[in-house]
Every structure is written in C-alpha cells, then in structure tokens.
Simulated scan of single mutants.
Amino acid sequence: MPAKLYSFSSSVWASVPRIALVEKQITDVEIVEVNLFNAENYSPAYLKINKNATVPSLIHHKNNHATIDDSTTIAEFLDSAYPEGPSLLPADEAAAAQVRELVAKSHSVDPNLVSLGAVNEQELAQKKPVVTAIMGGRVAALTRFTEEAPEHSVFYSEKVDAAKQLIGTYENPEHAGSLYSAINAEWAKIFAYFDEIELLLASHDGPYLIGKQYTLADVHFTCLIARLYVNRQDLLFENRPHLLKYWKTVQTRESFKVVYAELH
C-alpha cells in the first residue's frame, strides 16, 4: 500500500508536510486532495481515516499504516523516516528544543479564525459572499452525510450549528460585535508573536529562525505567514524589517515555489 498524504492546497497547516516532502526530496508519498470547501473532510469515507475530519493525515508503511493526523507529528515523522534527505531538526538537543518551541508558538495563534472572521463591518461585507457560500455548502454536505451515515449525526449536527451561526453573523451585521472583538483580539496575538520573531531574527545573522539551518520551525512559520499574507499583507511587515527580509528569503526556496506557486 503506497504512502498517502491527505491534504488540501488551501489549508494552512496541511501545507506543512507538503513543504517537508519537497525539502526532504521525498517522492514516494502520494498526495490525495481533500477539498475542504466542498466539505469532503466530513465525508463518512474520510472520517474512517481521520475521525476529527481535519487535514493533513498521513498513512505510511513505516508507521504500520496507522493514521498520523496532525501537521507537527507528520513533519517530524517525515524528517526521521527519511534520514537521507536534508535534516529539518538540529542534532543539538537545545537547538531542537528551540525549534519545537517555535513550532508550538506558530500553532498558538489561529489563522483560520481570522480568515473566516472580520475585524469590522467593512471587512464583514467584503468577505460575506465567500464565507456564506462556503458555510452554506458545508451545511448542505453535512445534511447529506447525516443521511448516509446516521452514526455520525451528533458530530455532524454540531458542525451544522457552527456553520449556521457564522452565516447568521454575516447576514446580520448588527449582531457581529462579539465576532469583531474576537478577531481583533486574535490579530493582536498574531502581531505580538510576529514582534517576538522580529526580535529573534534581529538577534543573530540568520537567515532562518534559529540561524543558518532551515528547520521545521521555518516550515510551520512559512505556512503561517503565507496564510496571513493573503489577509493582511499591508500590516504583517510594518516596522518588522527583519521579518520582511526573512519572508523574501523563504520565498526563494524550491519548496515555497512548489507549494505556494500562486504567491511566488
């Protein structure tokens, strides 16, 4: 059975193992696209692979064909399972710990939340057609899946309620105050984290997060910036010259060109 990576090209964290595949020069893993916009991740068939309905998921013979269902674990698995490729984790234990800490910090903010939400009424109006269409399609798909697999009805019902609530907020902006507060608070967390990274990059000669070696910390952080760049590219690098230089550097890597062809 060939190794399979279940992914979605527009998913922020599903891009992590895709970058790792290119960096490690791995060619024996088949990428299976799971279209989140069409709610394919909630299909009964995919729930057999990943009960959480998330991407990425990796099934690999070196892991006894058991599913690995989070980007952090998948990336580390690929790095160790293919030692012949360039290492993405430092051999030094202290440096490796720093890399893992940076990976965790990248996951401490929520790029999906700010992508689906809005900071004010103007952004709400701009995003309304896309967000309501995606959520409406999700509701329709979940309703169909409930009929096909009633054993998942409770799980599907929770997802339907969440989607309908978001649609309701977009259709009734007078009730969107709590959404604006949540999204502005999340952006504040993101910018505070980016300020930390700016100081980190300024503290050494670089060009990467922990210095000269490109690591898993860079893989995850690149995916985070790439997602946020689509939303607020005007503010990401404001008063952050080292971060801007870093962004330009990672864009030159072959892995970035392959995974983010539309941004290159």
Rank of each mutant, 00 (worst) to 15 (best):
A3D: 10
L5W: 04
Y6F: 09
F8H: 03
F8Y: 10
R18L: 04
I19T: 08
K24T: 02
I26Q: 09
I26V: 13
I31P: 00
V32L: 05
V32N: 05
F37I: 09
N38M: 04
E40T: 12
P44Q: 05
P44M: 02
A45R: 07
Y46I: 07
N50W: 01
A53C: 12
P56V: 03
P56K: 00
I59R: 01
I59D: 00
N63Q: 12
N64W: 09
A66Q: 12
A66I: 10
I68S: 00
T72E: 07
T73I: 11
F77C: 03
D79N: 14
P83C: 10
E84T: 10
E84H: 13
L88I: 09
A94R: 13
A95D: 09
E101N: 12
V103M: 04
H107Q: 15
L113A: 06
L113Q: 05
G117P: 03
G117V: 00
E123L: 08
E123I: 06
K127Q: 12
K128E: 01
V131K: 01
G136Q: 10
G136S: 15
R138Q: 02
F145W: 05
T146D: 08
E148M: 11
E148T: 12
A149D: 12
P150M: 07
Y156K: 09
S157M: 06
S157C: 05
D161Q: 13
Q165A: 15
Q165Y: 11
L166E: 03
T169C: 13
Y170I: 07
E171P: 03
E171K: 15
N172C: 06
P173Q: 03
S178T: 12
L179P: 00
L179V: 04
Y180H: 09
S181F: 08
S181Y: 09
A182I: 12
N184W: 01
N184E: 10
E186C: 06
E186Q: 10
K189N: 15
A192L: 10
L199S: 13
L200P: 02
L200N: 04
L200W: 11
D205H: 12
G206A: 13
L209K: 00
Y214C: 05
T215D: 14
T215K: 04
L216R: 00
D218F: 02
H220M: 10
C223W: 00
Y229T: 12
F237W: 09
N239F: 08
P241G: 14
P241T: 12
L243E: 07
K248G: 10
K248N: 14
F256H: 01
A261S: 13
H264T: 14
